[in-house]
Write a protein that binds this DNA or RNA. Structure first.
Lengths: 335, 335
DNA sequence: CTGAAAGCGCTTACAG
DNA sequence: CTGAAAGCGCTTACAG
């Protein structure tokens, strides 16, 4: 006999009533409610999610798509999303697209698993067909892309403007950009923001100082290290570097050290994401603060809302420039 | 009409045959097999895992328990486990017990979700009742604890002995221990290993130099920072520090810098886990190498094996001492 | 070697 | 306000 039936029996009600008590889907008299709750308690009854899913076509299972879980930025988003999802009765599986690309096959998997919603914490153009497929199948999506549903995104524009303006104010004119990802991606907004900010300061974003990412576009410390070596191979005529994220910045700093270039004396460095490590670097890394935990929390809430038909708004979070010890001024006598 | 039935119809067979083709549970003639495969392809049919789970009581869903996803050690384990699980047709959800303790309630959740197996990448005594419950319910468990099924663990003993022996060889006599977790935990084997290694070198593990963790026992950089401040508050009579993990070591180094103590000139520092950051520190952090990816991979394989009745062995991985720039010798004239 | 049918544990119109 | 019953999409004895 199923546990559910046992509970119904013990409470002297039908299975339907048990269901309504559990889900609050219909009014059940206080007395019956109590009896049911007591029976559930006594029998140690636990809902079987698979059965519920089969009946309702809802799994209570969300997915988080990241491109590198080893980047603490995503670990933080993941943790926060998980925490909030749990409060809402949802579970989340994090999918690292470093491991297996987010192809249509991956979407079949989501469908197979009855995933209710997905937060694309990362998005690259090549994911488009897969995402479209998921979207068309009815999987709720939260991402930076308006055409796939509600938007949850970070606005870097002001932060990057403030950062470039700060560097310019200190006398920096030749600022390099270390991408990690591909700057050709239409979604590589940070790069555009950087170009705009440079222009605003009347600075030239010299192509020579733009180091694009290399496949497989994992913007980690190794990538940053190699990007900086590449840059140093091209020229030493730059006084500051903006890295696409903190990992890349940290990697770049290692390459600078190896060339006995001093940060910030010779080169100023700015990262992005404000991962906890940045504050423990010596000197402390200047970076751009991104509300990672808030993103995770919001992603969970927005998805749960949408899934349950609760109206919800797009959310654009604002990144903020955070100065740090890796930024210094240009002294007279320097190029 | 269910997709499954459509497929059966299109292939001119029964649903049962479709099932056998999909699962390889019975011989099906090559001809029928082909017809079924073709029909599946044409209809774009995808298995519904919830339905299968209801029928078989198997979800194809694993859980990974970590105590801090933000520690790259666990991010790496998670990534590797996920990758291998996927190859085996399983999905994994990572549960951070920082967020919500691993209580019996958490286990009810696992049961409710029909989780097939769990890898306890972390274990503390207080989890015992919950783990026992999961175990008794039939959830397969991989952990460092033999009584809960197969063991997958890391042996630190030799690594720690080599590390202490290295420090002793350089003249260090007063070596501190920064725990982060609670040294009273019976599972805090590293601490025991450390004591043994000290004894072997004829060194005294002075209680004054043992800094225990503070609730909530999150062994992260902040914890390391505070632990070192605590230590410095007690005494400056130590020349080396072994931190329970790299994060704690990195945090400790910041506290040392603030007191203008130089690493390794004044104090040598050793961490544990060999997270990628360690190699990007300046100087490079001496640490203990842990085969994190291998753990994740093995965890997935072992769990899948056990769940599917394939015999599998316990696995004890070996950690290795990895010297680094944060270790220095004791010079004459020093205390 | 193949298929008809029961059953897994839920939810949800529907009838009362 | 409550319950009987159908149905969600699979798997698996069982019969043939």
């Amino acid at each position: 006999m199923s546990k559910r039936k046992e509970v119904a029996l013990a409470a002297g009600v039908s299975e339907a009533t048990v269901s309504h008590v559990i889900n609050g889907t219909k009014y059940v008299s206080p007395e019956l409610t109590m009896r049911v709750r007591k029976a559930i308690e006594e029998k140690g009854y636990r809902l079987n999610h698979a059965a519920r899913c089969l009946a309702t076509n809802r799994s209570g299972h969300l997915a988080l798509i990241v491109n590198n879980l080893k980047n603490p930025r995503y670990a933080e988003v993941s943790e926060a999303m998980q925490g909030q999802a749990r409060v809402r009765g949802y579970i989340v599986s994090t999918i690292d697209i470093n491991l297996f690309n987010f192809t249509e096959d991956a979407v079949f998997d989501l469908i197979s698993r009855n995933i209710d919603g997905v937060f694309l914490a990362t998005y690259i153009d090549s994911m488009e067909p897969a995402v479209r497929r998921a979207y068309e199948h009815g999987i709720k999506i939260i991402s930076g892309i308006p055409r796939f549903g509600k938007v949850l995104d970070v606005e870097y524009k002001n932060a990057i403007r403030d950062m470039v303006s700060c560097l310019a104010g200190l006398g920096h004119r030749r600022i390099a950009y270390l991408s990690g990802y591909s700057i050709k991606e239409s979604s590589h907004e940070k790069y555009e923001n950087f170009l705009d900010a440079m222009k605003e300061q009347g600075l030239l974003a010299d192509k020579e100082l733009i180091v694009d990412g290399q496949p497989p576009f994992v913007a980690d410390m190794d990538a940053g290290y190699h990007a900086m070596k590449e840059l140093l191979g091209r020229t030493r005529d730059f006084t500051a570097v903006f890295a696409v994220n903190d990992l890349v910045a940290i990697g770049a700093m290692k390459a600078l050290r190896e060339q006995e270039l001093w940060v910030p004396g010779d080169v100023s460095v700015v990262g992005c994401d404000n991962i906890q490590f940045s504050a423990y670097m010596q000197p402390e890394l200047a970076t751009i603060r991104v509300p990672k935990a808030e993103m995770g929390r919001l992603a969970a809430d927005m998805l749960c809302d949408i899934i349950n038909g609760i109206p919800c708004e797009d959310a654009i979070l604002t990144a903020k420039f955070q100065p740090g010890g890796t930024i210094g001024g240009i002294f007279k006598g320097r190029a």
